[in-house]
């Protein structure tokens, strides 16, 4: 029974954190069609924001505004200098953002060093829940992610900006013709996407290894989730996260971690093959 609860919570945790990680890429790739190979690097910058705040002896929560500012500013610069010239040119975007990712990794390596860093959990220890001990920080993080997603979902469905983004994604010419400044909205969307990636980095920093090359893992898992869940909907994103996270947890529990990893890979390949638009496709 305890084991079932543990696996249940692990599944929930894995879904929630994967959702958090993929969200920024879902915005940038799912809405703007920009395959941002530097997505993981923005997560990495978020984690280093948390590290910087910790090294300065400031409260952990200050890392959130720091990461939003750093990632937002960098995202703005990146959109202005590179991305805006490459919309609807996926391969060029792919190469350009990969180059930017390398620069970001090297930049952090020069500034902070290549070595592993550790960000403390602001809520260490475990909490007894349903008969098992579960890390307190994880439980709070899950709650934060759920609230964040709910708020985002409501905002995206109800707000005028949400409608404008959907309009721009679906029919950019018409969106411009009705008076939507698509260039500005694209930039705002891109900046928001990378800032969300930075936020994910802050929130995950206490749980993961922090080093300049950490971003690659996040790019890969985000890509798998988008393949399975499809682009452009929050439902797809959550479903994709739970399928990827769930397959990993369940297969790893029954067999071993290698099988879990292969399972995730197999599911992603099957989706690419049989349902290239994912479960929830906006088409």
């Amino acid at each position: 029974m305890d084991l079932v609860v543990t696996y249940g919570l692990n599944f929930a945790y894995s879904t929630a954190t994967l959702g958090l990680i993929v969200l920024g890429l879902a915005v940038v790739f799912g809405l703007l069609g920009v395959m941002n190979m530097a997505h993981g690097e923005f997560v990495m910058l978020g984690a280093y924001s948390a590290l910087t705040v910790q090294q300065a002896g400031l409260p952990f929560l200050l890392a959130i505004p720091l990461a939003l500012i750093v990632c937002g500013a960098l995202g703005w610069l990146m959109e202005w200098s590179v991305i805006r010239h490459l919309y609807r040119r996926p391969f060029d975007t792919f190469l350009a953002t990969w180059g930017i990712a390398i620069l970001m990794r090297k930049g952090v390596e020069v500034t902070f060093g290549r070595e592993y860093q550790s960000v403390d959990q602001s809520l260490p220890g475990t909490v007894s829940l349903l008969g098992i001990d579960y890390p307190a920080y994880r439980l709070v993080l899950m709650a934060v992610i759920v609230v964040m997603f709910a708020a985002l979902f409501v905002w995206y469905q109800r707000s005028n900006t949400g409608a404008r983004i959907k309009a721009m994604v679906q029919n950019p010419d018409l969106a411009a013709a009705v008076g939507i400044n698509t260039a500005r909205l694209s930039r705002a969307t891109f900046v928001t996407g990378v800032a969300i990636a930075g936020l994910a980095g802050v929130l995950l920093a206490p749980l993961v290894r922090v080093e300049p090359y950490m971003g690659l893992d996040y790019l890969l898992s985000s890509f798998f989730i988008l393949v399975v869940g499809g682009l452009g909907t929050i439902e797809g994103l959550i479903t994709g996260s739970s399928i990827i996270g769930g397959a990993d947890v369940i297969i790893s529990a029954i067999f071993d971690k290698t099988a879990g990893y292969l399972g995730v890979l197999a599911i992603s390949i099957l989706f690419l093959w049989l349902r290239p638009d994912g479960i929830f496709s906006r088409r």
Binding site: S14, S221, K257, T258
Partner: peptide
């Protein structure tokens, strides 16, 4: 247990260890 190099989630291993 042996894990692939890319492993970044160890929850199932920890559950087994416990």
């Amino acid at each position: 247990e042996y894990l692939p190099f890319t492993a970044d989630n160890f929850d199932s291993n920890l559950a087994k260890i416990k």
